[in-house]
Design a binder for these strands. Structure first.
Lengths: 222, 222
DNA sequence: TTATAGACTACTGTCGACAGTAGTCAGACT
DNA sequence: AGTCTGACTACTGTCGACAGTAGTCTATAA
């Protein structure tokens, strides 16, 4: 069977492209972006760029303000909202995951916690973030709920945007590792309600720490 | 101060317009829709319609399939996912609401439950649905989390779409009223964790009932 | 009769153009 | 000097046009 890769429409490619640029920080938060500029830069007409804009708008990554469009600029209140939503969704994710997680998946999670302890000792921040993301991401995936995965993807983009702009290297205090162990334990024991409640608390704790950091460096007028 | 209403761009109006048409069922689930048709019908060009499409696509109300676009057709698996997400979000909503609900808001909720009992007795289905929606919607609003409200709005649209297409008159068994009383009680007592857990169970129970109805009338090939 | 090529059709994705508008700047008037 | 007016500019929203393509129908060939 011959397969031909028929490339995605431009507006899709441009959508992905801009999305990445925003998350990476190439387009800065609050900055203005103009369809014409991007069109010119990419050597295409404005139509597909505008269609990409509409998708980004719906993702919340760009905002329309009286005709001009700006890159989404997270503010503290919104960040809190996002974390709370995250707490709700991930709480549900682990609730579901508890009921269907396989042994090898449990082992992988446990391994990642061992690695994280090592990375913390070595002060390897990037590795810590990566493993932390892996831990949360795994549970979301194991939940098996596609909608939930999709929504968490979008939420994480927005939170990431915030972190990239203000706390590039932040990964919370090291208490999270203990909480991760507790989560793992709840997963093992099969107590979905307990796991869910722990996850919510874990994420809300993370939020509290973030808030403290925020008030500590409130010179960043958010 | 003179105020001039500068009307929204066409693509916004068209977006709202189509969204409503889909939810109301004027465009049927799974049906094909073509930008050109809508453009012609509205007497505009295809550009704003296409931009509206991109927004709808991001909402999940329409789906792109190899170049053609179809109205989203809910299937059972997806409905389950949606309900689980709903359970997560509304669980969080009541968790937050518990901590900030005012007395008059509690009273209004209680009133609505009294009215619902009456409506059930009178077999006034529309009224039951309306009050039920009010109960859940109030809690979401009281949570004060704008993101959560927004996301629940979209989820409810998708669920509504399902109901409109398959269970126009369904509102679950009457047990829900007892569960609503329990939720109210948890709200009053200020026990956020308990309220949250109850809400999740309440919604998952609702899902179970829906599933039963589904298998009962499985002639609807979803 | 079935299969195949060719014409026709309808739709998608993209383009370039244009009107309206908000903002900027320079020059004229007080 | 300050401010008002008008020209100029840049951007947004919308339009009509067109190429490419997938699907349908018809007529011809095996």
């Amino acid at each position: 069977m011959i397969q031909v890769k028929k490339s995605n429409p431009l507006y899709e490619q441009i959508y992905e492209n801009i999305k990445e640029s925003i998350i990476k920080g190439d387009f800065k938060s609050g900055e203005r972006i103009v369809d014409g500029w991007i069109a010119e830069q990419l050597g295409v007409s404005r139509s597909p760029v505008r269609e990409a804009f509409r998708k980004l708008e719906q993702d919340g990554l760009i905002v329309n303000q009286e005709g001009t469009t700006l890159v989404y600029k997270p503010n503290v209140d919104d960040l809190i909202d996002l974390f709370e939503v995250r707490a709700g969704l991930e709480g549900m994710a682990i609730f579901l995951a508890t009921k269907k997680i396989a042994n090898d998946e449990l082992e992988k999670l446990e391994e990642s916690l061992v690695l994280v302890k090592k990375a913390i000792k070595e002060k390897n921040t990037m590795e810590v973030i990566k493993l932390n993301t892996f831990f949360h991401g795994s549970i979301i995936k194991i939940s098996g709920n596609r909608r939930l995965q999709e929504m968490m993807g979008k939420i994480n983009n927005l939170i990431l945007l915030y972190r990239n702009n203000f706390f590039a290297k932040y990964y919370g205090d090291d208490v999270f590792i203990n909480e991760h162990y507790e989560l793992l334990h709840a997963l093992k024991s099969g107590n979905a309600e307990a796991a869910s409640e722990k996850m919510r608390q874990h994420i809300l704790n993370d939020l509290e720490q973030l808030k403290e950091k925020l008030s500590a460096q409130s010179d960043n007028d958010l």
